[in-house]
Each structure stands twice: as structure tokens, then as C-alpha cells.
């Protein structure tokens, strides 16, 4: 399948009313290893993902894919929303929207639930699952679409260390199979573990985009250095 990457953002701006939530996002995302987006609260991490994913329309600048990304991208939200149906049906739902026959989509959904370790609870109602389980269902739901690029907005923000590890393992497996991972996090340890390159946002701007080792060893801007000094290191 032809790749929709690289994704090129040029001077992307987003103003909601009089509030500017994105000042200048200029960034290229290439296929390959995971990209981790870091920055303080309000720096525009979620906005960047929403713009890339097409949930927010920029008020300025351009977002260009190598080819039409329709149906080739997926997103996992910080607070996954679950429909009032089984975990399996939630995972299969995206495929149902695409008109895939029931047996085929159920088989795929079951496979993805297995791969996130949830085969045992496939038939339980999704909304009564624990936070960690819902996070994995959300990941399985995105995975079922076999996206070329997967955006994740702080997927482990409310998870305990074990659940966080489980999620990271799944993401690594997906990355190994060729899915481009673009994830925001406040967890710098996680950024090191998962990321190949780091995008640092500050007040609605992309201030740095560097390989992970270089970013942590010698950040190129005083803002990034201050951010790294201020964040807790785990």
C-alpha cells in the first residue's frame, strides 16, 4: 500500500475565537519509528494531534500528506469513549462503519483484543471495564483499522505502571509492524523508552524536533532545557 507519509505541516495556525491555540506548527513526520510529542500543559500537544488527524481545521498554514489519508489514520484519545455494547463490538465498530461484513470484522476485532490481552473480556460491556482495560480496548479499536499512522493523546495518563508497560509493549509491536506512532506524553521515561525522535512544543509552537538521545542530552533551546529540568524524570 502506498504510504500517506511523510506528513508536512507548514506554519499551521489555529485560533478558536480570539484564543490562539496553535501559533506556528511547522513539522515533518516521516514513516518509521515512534515520534513522541512533549511540552507543558497548554503547549498545544492535543491540538497538534487533532490538527494532524483532521479533527481540527487550521485557520492558517497547510497540512499536506503524501497522498489522501482518508481511512489510513486512527487516534486514541486520552479519555476513551466507549459505546454501550461489548468490548468486541466496540472494536469492530470502526470496521462496521466501513461496511465490512460481520464475520470478517468480528474476526479482526477478536484478533486485536487477543493481541492487547483482553480476549477473556471480549463479550463484557465496554463501559463497565476498568480504566486500564478501556485504554487497551481503545488501542485495539484503533488497531483494527490497520492505520498507517496512529495518534495517541496521553494514552497512559491515568494508568498504573503495569498497565502503562502493557500499553507500551503493544505500541512497540505495532511500530514493528510498520505503523507510525505519534504520541503525546508527560512521562519522559516513556518518551525515552518508546521514542525515536522528540517533538517539543512551547506555547503553540514547535520549538524542537530532534532524535531522542540528542533532545535529552543537549536540548537546543532554553525552553526545552527548562522543561526537562522541571519535569520529574520517570
Amino acid at each position: 500500500m502506498a504510504s500517506i507519509l511523510p506528513l508536512q505541516l507548514s506554519h499551521v495556525r489555529l485560533a478558536i475565537g480570539t484564543t490562539i491555540v496553535a501559533e506556528d506548527f511547522t513539522l515533518a513526520l516521516a514513516a518509521g519509528d515512534p515520534t513522541i510529542v512533549v511540552g507543558a500543559n497548554g503547549s498545544g500537544k492535543s491540538t497538534l494531534l487533532r490538527l494532524c488527524h483532521g479533527l481540527a481545521i487550521p485557520t492558517g498554514g497547510t497540512i499536506a500528506w503524501a497522498r489522501d489519508p482518508k481511512g489510513q489514520q486512527a487516534m486514541v484519545f486520552q479519555r476513551p469513549s466507549m459505546l454501550r455494547r461489548s468490548a468486541l463490538a466496540n472494536v469492530a465498530y470502526g470496521l462496521k462503519l466501513r461496511g465490512m461484513p460481520r464475520e470478517m470484522r468480528t474476526a479482526i476485532a477478536r484478533d486485536r483484543l487477543c493481541r492487547v490481552g483482553l480476549e477473556a473480556i471480549a463479550d463484557r460491556p465496554a463501559r463497565v471495564l476498568s480504566g486500564g482495560e478501556q485504554a487497551r480496548v481503545a488501542l485495539a479499536r484503533a488497531w483494527a483499522l490497520d492505520p498507517q499512522i496512529l495518534f495517541l493523546d496521553e494514552p497512559t495518563a491515568s494508568l498504573d505502571p503495569a498497565a502503562t508497560r502493557a500499553l507500551e509493549d503493544i505500541l512497540r509491536a505495532m511500530a514493528d509492524e510498520g505503523t507510525k506512532i505519534v504520541m503525546t506524553t508527560h512521562n519522559l521515561g516513556q518518551a525515552r523508552r518508546l521514542g525515536a525522535d522528540i517533538v517539543f512544543l512551547h506555547r503553540g509552537r514547535v520549538l524542537e524536533h530532534a532524535p531522542v538521545e540528542r533532545f535529552f542530552r543537549s536540548p537546543g533551546t532554553p525552553e526545552a532545557a527548562a522543561y526537562l529540568a522541571g519535569e520529574l524524570p520517570w
Binding site: L55, G71, A74, M75, P80, S81, L97
Partner: peptide, 12 residues
């Protein structure tokens, strides 16, 4: 309000 982003993301 609860499901809007998710449903749009899935292409509904």
C-alpha cells in the same frame, strides 16, 4: 459531546 471526537475519528 461524549462521543463526537471518537466517532469522527473512526470516520462515521
Amino acid at each position: 459531546a461524549e462521543h463526537c471526537d471518537q466517532l469522527r475519528s473512526l470516520g462515521a
